[in-house]
Structures are given as C-alpha cells and as structure tokens.
Design a binder for these strands. Structure first.
Lengths: 340, 340
DNA sequence: TCCCTCCATGGAAGCGCTCTCAAGCCTATC
DNA sequence: GATAGGCTTGAGAGCGCTTCCATGGAGGGA
C-alpha cells in the first residue's frame, strides 16, 4: 500500500534522488532512466507521501477558508455554499486542498485562531467576509500568514476580492426611483460588515442625488437573515414607504412576509428589490427583482489570488504588492417591483 | 516565528525529548521540569509544527468530506451547508480539521480519487451521500482508508449514518391518508440514491396497507432540485391527484409552483408534503408540511463515528466492527395540507 | 591527444517531531 | 550498607521526502 521512495528506487535500480527527480519533473534525468523509473512507480503503485513532502518543502498545498463567528450564522444562506463551491473548484484545478473552518459558538475563538493560523498545515487562507472588528485579520498579519479577504477592508495591506456593492445598491435604488417611487426605505445589514456599509452608501447616494428623503425612519438594520428582514420591515411599515431596498435577498424574503402579514400587496402597495440573486429570489411570489453578484466567481478568484500571493511570497521572500479585485453586479428585473 | 523544539529545549536547558513529553502531556516529567519547559514554550511563542508531527506519528488529524459528482449539484441545497456545519462543529470539538472535496465537472474524477484517497493527508473520510453506483466506495475499500458514508449502503462492511427515510415517508403518507386523501401521488428522487429508494418504499408501503392506488402514473421521478420537482409535478397533474408527497422540500417548492401555474390551490385542490424541513419550507406560501430530519446531527455523527473508526483501527490494527446509526425523523405539520 | 565543461546520477544532510532504549539518580527494603 | 526498583531524563534513530554537493563519464574545442 504505502510504498516509499527507497523501494521504488531499489526496484528501478537507481537512487532515491533520481526517483524524486522523476516525480517532480526535474529536467536533468535521461529519458531512458525516466522511463525505467516511471515503470517502477507504476508497478509498485507508488504515490508520494504528501506529509513527508510537505515537511521537506515547507509547502502543504492546503488552503484554509475561515468563516468568522460574525457570519457563521449566515452559513445556511445559499451565498456560502456557492462561494465555497467556486473556491473548491478553483482548488481542484490548481491542485490544492481546502480546509474549512467555521467558527462556532462551541469553541473558544482564541483556540480556533491558534489552531488555524499556527497549525502549520496551511499555506495561506481565505477570510470569508470578516467584519471590521474581527480580530482575525490583525491576527493573520501578526502571524505573517498569506491571506485574502472576501470583501474590501480598509487596511491597505489586505488583499481582497469584493463585488461592487455600492454600484449594485445604486442600481437597485435607481430602479425604484425610475419607477416613480419617492418614499424608498432600506433594510440594511449589520453596520460592522463592509458589504452592508457599501450597500447603504449606494442607497444614500442615489436618494440624495434625487433629493429624496432618507431619514432615519426609512432605514432599518437587519442581520442578513430572513427573520431579521421581517422584523426590520415591520418597523419600516410605520413610515408608509412605497418601496424597499433590502440589502440581501434573504432579508427581502422576510420583508415580503412582513408586508403580506399587514395585508399589503406586492408590488402594488410596496415594491421591493433584493440583493444577491440567490435561488429563493425566484421561489417567492412575486419573484424578486434583485442585484446579482457572481458568487461562485468570488470564491474562485479568492483562491487564485491567494495562490498568487503564496507563490509571490515564496519567490520574493516577502509579500508582493497588494492585490485587489472588484467584481461587477447586475440588476435582474422580476416581478417584485411591478413592470419596469 | 516558527521556532523549533530544539530551540525551546535549549532555552529551557533540557533535551528535545523532554520538551516533546511536556507538549504531549506525557506523565513522566517532574513538575519542576514541566513548569520550566512550559515557561520556555510560552516565552518563545513556540507551537509544534503539525506537519513534522504528522510525519512522525502517521496521523494528520485531518478528515476529508467527499461530495461525489452525483450529488454536487445539490450542494446549494441547504442540506449540505447544514450537514457540513454539523461536521465542522464536531471536528472543532475533537481537534480535527476538515478538508472539503467537491467533485466538479472540471476535474477528471479519477484524478480526484487519487488526490483524495492517496494524498496521505487524510486520516479518514466521510462520503457524503454517495449513490450506489459511485465508484468512490469500492475505491476506498481498495485503498483501505477508514471512512463513513452518509446514507445507508448495502455493502455490509460500510459504516454509515442515515436517517429513517422510510419511516419518514410513511409518516408523510399516513398524514395524507388520515386527511382523507385517496389519490396520493409521489415525486421521488433519483433511483440510484438510497434516500430516494427508501422514501419511495415508505410511500408504497403505506399506500398498499390502505389499499390505495400507487400506479405508475402517480409516481414521477425528480432529481431533488426545484426545477425537477416542478417538471415532475406537471406530469403528475395529468392524473388528478388530490395530494402529493415530494421526497424533498426543494422538489416540493417546485411542485407548488407547478400546481399554482395550473391555477390550482394549495391545499384545497392539492395537498402537499415535503421532506427535509429546510428553511425555505417556511418561505413558500402556504408553509410546507414536511418531514424533519436532523441534518446537522448527521454531519456531527459522521465525524464522531469516523474518529472512532480511525482510533479503533489504530488500536487494533484492523477495522473494528461495522458501525451504523439511523436517526429518527419527525412530521412537521404546517399549512400545505390543510388543517390536520 | 589533452583538458575543460556539461549532464546525469548518487550520497547525504536535513525538514521538526516522536519514541524506544539506556542511563542516572534516588528511595525503600532487607 | 548494599541492592532492587521506580522515576526522570537524554541520546539517537527514524518518519519519507527534497536538494545541495560531489562524482564520474561523455563530448567538444584547441
């Protein structure tokens, strides 16, 4: 089963070094020897031991994806699976493995940090939507671990991939304005998460451009969950908005329920736009007009960038220039706002 | 940053062996020495190198979760995230890491098999709902890798954790019978997946007990997705069922749409029961009566069992007795069947 | 024909840790 | 006071691989 280099070497009649060279595609091996060794490898059913290799090379080809506690509860949202799928797909293509770490309440987060950051198993890691006050990112800097954040981060040493949240929010709000709405409310996300901030900013920008009211009462904070959206909408309804922009589809779904619960119709009484374009945007009735973001692509890009960072670091002995990527969003018009 | 045992040893004025003993909580170290070493460890900021340790112990404390190609497309279903969350949580508690491998179309599956099974990084793995004709399980036996399957498997060497799919299906169907339905249709899952088989069996059992028709026309095969459920329901509608049991909530959601599209009302014209109790079971209108399964628990249990298997193997030098676990399901009554 | 260079290969020293074995010391027992 | 046994500790041999360095042989230029 688990044969070693030596055995293959013996069987091929060459030295261990030579077998190693063949395995690593080192150029200076004669074709003849190479063939002989290949045959021996084949015949022994040999596979290099990844752990030993890692010890020698100081590279594991394992990346970590850390989902901080602040967003763990969102894990059941279709957002994460999709992002994760993109990431694993990119890992597959690039010959990496992905270790998933969810911070859950059951484990002291300092322990998790330790285990993750210092286990020595990871070549680098992806911080999935760490919020601004997560201690994760400072910790990673302190440890000197290559990482990429998903979502922008003000620290300008941070590599990140983000989507154009602000632009998306602008499109959403503009769409409602274009439909003639004046009292447009917004259900935002947690203030410490940058996507929430950016989406709010986009909304405010458009409202102000059109000199529309965006008073305190028209803005409610949700937590990106359906229940949160529902609760927020209930508050907002007191202000009689004719339209709402929800910073996530999950919250929009909750809002739809709240609106219905008040006996109001969508889109006739209240129009609504979401954000994300998760599958359930088309499950609700009416289907949700929303802002689509390329979720899988985010995961993919994060992996690609991280590998670049790691390679760069290996090559130069220190971090290369900060890398950043902002992906575009897209307005998807469906039934929840009435005809466009 | 990355200090070694030797440095700590030097700093504490003891040998490398002693430091190693302290780290591994070996009993035969005097309290005095232990304290001295602890202090040195603290002071150096030393953390053992996991890779080196793994090489020496032949244990990585990494588990793999493999999602075969046959079910990868279901990954966006809330089922997987929940199961995954359960699994990672158990891993955290037990001090393990979890590598996630999704088979995606972009990578040759034989390569994936190789990478997964023989990388040497994994102490064992969890096969997530491998269908009967996946080559994954035979491959794992061939390699002698400890593993646990999620979902029953006919090979009686296979360790698995499953839910009582058949019992759940029985409850669902019984519920409809109790409500007076006679023409009860079923939307099944792919025939090669055991949960689909078991749910179908449960349905057939109840139908036959009550001498109700369960003709070919009343049974349609979906693929566990919403789109599949919708298509299946469209077929079934030709048979004028008054009730439907869908083998998954996603399919039930699709069925709801198909029913609505025909201008029929739920539950008045057609009652519907789902399976899983995923969050969107409560997003649709009316909320879905369904069979709840303890999804997170499945992931947790799979991890616990796997660790047992691994430990057992290490202790005895060969596989311990086959381990199996079947978790109960529960009927959740909501609006989609009318009043109970 | 001789010397230098280049290429293919082997030898051996690690990578950082664990763990067996042996040695040293101390206490208890007779 | 001598011996046996227990408790601590250190030395060193790996775990399986990579990689630097040295070696030997072949080929080319003078």
């Amino acid at each position: 089963m688990s044969r070693t280099l030596d055995e293959v070497a013996k069987s091929a009649g060459v030295s261990r070094s030579t077998v190693s060279r063949v395995i690593n595609d080192h150029p200076s091996v004669s074709d003849e020897t190479r063939a002989k060794v290949q045959a021996a490898i084949e015949q022994c059913g040999y596979r290099p031991n990844a752990v030993a290799r890692s010890l020698a090379t100081n590279r594991t080809n394992i990346l970590g994806m850390v989902v901080p506690e602040s967003v763990t509860k969102l894990f059941t949202d279709p957002y994460f699976p999709l992002m994760l799928r993109g990431a694993t797909e990119a890992c597959n293509r690039r010959g990496y493995h992905l270790i998933l770490s969810l911070f859950t309440a059951s484990v002291e987060s300092s322990i998790m940090h330790d285990r993750i950051a210092r286990s020595g198993y990871l070549d680098g890691l992806i911080a999935a939507n760490a919020s601004l006050d997560d201690k994760l990112i400072p910790g990673l800097f302190a440890e000197g671990i290559p990482f990429v954040n998903i979502g922008r981060h003000p620290d300008d040493r941070v590599n990140y991939v983000d989507v154009d949240n602000r632009g998306g929010a602008r499109m959403a709000t503009e769409h409602l304005v274009r439909l003639g709405h004046k009292r447009i409310a917004m259900i935002g996300g947690p203030a410490d998460m940058t996507p929430a901030q950016d989406r709010l900013d986009g909304y405010l920008e458009v409202m102000s451009t059109h000199r529309l009211p965006a008073s305190k009462g028209l803005i409610a904070e949700g937590d990106f969950t359906e229940a949160g959206g529902r609760a927020a909408m209930l508050e907002l309804l007191a202000e009689n908005p004719t339209a709402v922009f929800a910073a996530s589809d999950s919250m929009a779904v909750g809002a739809v329920k709240a609106i219905r619960a008040q006996g109001l119709r969508i889109p006739d009484d209240v129009a609504i736009v979401g954000f994300d374009d998760i599958p359930s945007a088309r499950t609700v009735d009416p289907e949700l007009t929303t802002i689509r973001q390329p979720i899988e692509r985010i995961g993919q890009l994060a992996v690609e960038m991280l590998i670049n960072v790691i390679d760069g670091k290996a090559a130069e002995g220190n971090m290369a220039a900060t890398q950043r990527f902002v992906l575009p969003t897209e307005l998807i018009v469906r039934g929840s706002c009435g005809s466009s």
